[in-house]
C-alpha cells in the first residue's frame, strides 16, 4: 500500500471550501462541504500550508516540512496517518 502511495499528489482543499481562523496555538477550520469544524494543531496547519493548491507528493511534503518547520522528528508513519485523516475529513484532496 505504501508503495502505491508514493506517486499520489496531495493538495489542500480549495481555499473557497474552507474557512480558517487562528485561535492561539490552535487553528479552527470550518469545512464548508461537510459543515464540520475541525480544531487542529501542529503539524496540521503546516501540512495544509505546505501542500497549498499546487500540491505535492508525500516525500516532497516530508522534505518541505523538515526544512520549513524543523519537523525533523516527524516519522513517515505518523505523517501518513495525519494525511489519511485530512483526506477523510475533506481538508486535503488527492489530486
Amino acid at each position: 500500500m505504501d508503495d502505491s502511495r508514493g506517486d499520489i499528489v496531495y493538495r489542500m482543499a480549495r481555499p473557497e471550501t474552507l474557512k480558517i481562523t487562528h485561535l492561539d496555538s490552535f487553528t479552527a477550520v470550518f469545512h464548508r462541504a461537510s459543515g464540520i469544524t475541525h480544531l487542529v494543531t501542529s503539524p496540521v496547519p503546516e501540512i495544509l500550508a505546505a501542500l497549498g493548491e499546487a500540491g505535492m507528493r508525500r516525500v516532497d511534503l516530508m522534505a518541505r516540512l523538515s526544512v520549513d518547520y524543523l519537523l525533523g522528528d516527524a516519522d513517515e508513519a505518523a505523517l501518513d496517518a495525519r494525511l489519511d485523516e485530512l483526506v477523510a475529513a475533506g481538508l486535503v484532496a488527492v489530486a
Binding site: R32, A33, S34, G35, I36, A88, G90
Partner: peptide, 16 residues
C-alpha cells in the same frame, strides 16, 4: 440548507 450539506457529505463519505 445545513441539512442538505450534511446529507451530501455523508453520501460522499460513503462513496469514498
Amino acid at each position: 440548507e445545513q441539512g442538505r450539506v450534511a446529507a451530501l457529505w455523508e453520501a460522499e463519505a460513503a462513496r469514498r
